[in-house]
Design a protein around this nucleic acid. Sequence first.
RNA 1: GCUGGCGUAGCUCAAUCGGUAGAGCACCUGCCUUGUAAGCAGGGGGUUAGGGGUUCGAGUCCCCUCGUCAGCUCCA
Length: 675
Amino acid sequence: MADEKMATVRDVLAAQIANDPSIIGAKVDGRVVDVHTPFPLREGARVDPVRSSDQDGLRIIRHSTAHVMADAVQRLFPGTKVTIGPAIAAGFYYDFDKPSGPFTDEDLAKIESAMREIIAAGRPFRRELTSRDEAHALFERMGESYKRELIDAIPANEAISLYRHGSGDGEWVDLCEGPHVPSTSFLKAIKLVSVAGAYWRGDERNPMLQRIYGTAFPSQKALDAYLKQLEEAKARDHRKLGKELDLFMFHEYAPAMPFLLPKGAHVYNGLIEYVRDLYRTEGYEEVVTPQIFDKRLFEASGHWAHYTDNMFFATSQDRLEELFTDERFASKLEKLLAAKKAGNVGEVSEIIKSVVDLAQKPMNCPSHCLMYKHRRRSYRELPWRVADFCRLHRYERGGVVHGMARVRSFAQDDAHIFCPPEKMGDEIDRFLKFFYGVYGALGFKKIDIKLATRPDERIGTNEQWDMAEGALEQVLRNQELAFEFSPKEGAFYGPKYEFHVEDALGRSWQLGTLQIDYGLPDRFELEYTGADGAAHRPVMLHRAIYGSLERFFSVFIEHTAGAFPVWLAPEQAVVVTVSERQTDYAHEVVAYLAGKGLRVRADVGSDKLGAKIRNARLGRVPYVVVVGDKEAADRKVAPRSRDLDKDLGPMPLEDFAARLSAEATPPRLHAKASS
RNA sequence: GCUGGCGUAGCUCAAUCGGUAGAGCACCUGCCUUGUAAGCAGGGGGUUAGGGGUUCGAGUCCCCUCGUCAGCUCCA
């Protein structure tokens, strides 16, 4: 372009920077650049300041901190090679190839103090453009073989830039796009968090590198707030609360399969009951289906070809004896032994799998298709909304299971909607309102939706994809819900909504879903008779509000910090006596409240009042109801509210019962969707 | 699955160089008769995850298995 000149942001925004030292970069026509590096400035270009507190500014700070960390690591551990070190949502990391093995916690402390020295020295960052050959030669000399690989991956038409900080012996250089802060002294608050293994380029066939995670903030105050939030998250960890509140347990005889203890089962079932009730008005019909199926079902659905890595298999004694007389089995055994001798693991497992006759279901859809096919269907009975809370089993790899959040045995608030393709829009609309209603009622304030569109590898015609994606998009626009596209992230059989639900700590979880599926109706040859008397193929919607109940439960525990709302709480009140004299009265109060359908227990033990209250509070019981001589004399109670965190004072037993009953009613759906 | 860490009483954790397995809480019993976050005393409770090895001797060192944690990968 003709009217370009070289300039720095520092010059262009001189007046603003003079008044605002937090400006550490700028967005020039949408691209983030340093304040100190000259760049070609187009006449009339838009230059917006980027401050250290902005998302973009934070990235600059963190990425610069990553460079400083790598510098410190290479000073302290000569021979360690650098790879990549980006800024991420919560901070940054840098992956190293360290021949002497992993970093220890002591190493981290040393690295951190070396970083502080580099920061205190105020070394300037400098950007430098270079040729591909020069860059190659430079990293060759330095022995940085990973950087050479990275250079090769940069497209030929893109410039190669280096960043240096420091000078002379203190200089450190990295292949880097930038941008960076002007000098290391701009880094105000840093912290190394953890160390972990990570594969070069994320591929498990590649060598394992040593990754150090850290974070950085524009001020010590912001860093402290972040560390405090980490602590809060730790305190709310559902695995910890699950133990403390007696919600669930695990056992090595069923790894990654939760055992819900009575209190946990109460909340879990309460969540199910809540949507089950709503199903009546929302037009769903609930069914109950088998756990174990002949593998022919999964051959029909496609799971046998694509999903057996995640499936549990089953068999029976009769089947095993039947194999004894099966000639084909004998020849399979020979093949198996040959494959074993040849060390062919894949073939051995294929042969064994071919003998297996039964499998645990990993999903409900195939059995719902069988139910659909059970008889001829008319257009008059569609849409058919089939709900199912049956347990599902999926084999998840050992490294991915996590408390209740990722398990091998779970249930979903699963339902499938079979409908004519032209009715799809109405069903999506209806479901979205239902979905937002439930999350609003459960106290979640913010949900982001993404529309995941066709992936490269897919089934179905382009017309079908157009229609399905169009329907999903149109409903969002009609309901005026903000959304983003998630390109190519749809399932291979159809597009879907992803719901990202934000919890009380501002963390986002992907919970429910809505997916459109043309594939299964084809595979199972589902049909309905239309008004024209001809056979038509329905489309199938997979939808869940909670998604996996186990996973939802884990999020809900952390969201509420274990303080479940009164209507879901396993124990709604504990009646505590001041002395043994009130034992009879306490039992009378419990009987009265229980008679109103409330879940109440008496604590008439020999503990002092303070200890009883402490125990009830640790158990997150919504009300601690104190009864002493004064209350017993007047048929009163003195409740203390968990949520208001205060003593409500003496009140007639009937008044308290009315208050508790009101709070024990499940919330109504919040009619208005929010996003 | 991979890399690394961890596994001691129901829970949270001690146990020096390889030398008699302990504490607090919880539980049980008794005393205390209690007024808004822990009253006092006593008692029971362990194949130190499981298996193998080294050693005069293993919670401790080595190997295998299982479980678990963090990260990576995965989540049709």
